[in-house]
Amino acid sequence: MRLGFLVGVFGVLVLAHAAISTIQYRGLLKIMEEEFSGPPVNVMVELLLGLVLCMWAALTVPGKFLSIHPHSEENRIVSLPVNLDFVIFNHRGRAFPVVTKLKLNH
């Protein structure tokens, strides 16, 4: 995520450099009295690079997708109840005969 953010910043810087180059190029064209048909090749390469870098940043920085299925690994509830101290497993109910066995004897 951190790396993606840095890549995004770098991409924006590349785009800014391309923008400054285009402004200078347009100024030059104005002096030479020619029409603007498209930026020069190195600016095109910079734009493409910036677009790809920013795309990568846009896809990685905002965070991971989380599964919406209630039965998936991440969404399963595995924690024990909070009031575990009040739950008693060791009580005198153990001394009584088990009801199912009584039924079997009949």
Binding site: G11, V12, L15, A18, A19, T22, F36, G38, P39, V43, L47, G50, L51, C54, M55, A58
Partner: peptide
């Protein structure tokens, strides 16, 4: 970003 690129490309 697309807006910036479209603006630069004219």
């Amino acid at each position: 970003i697309a807006g910036v690129v479209a603006g630069i490309l004219g």
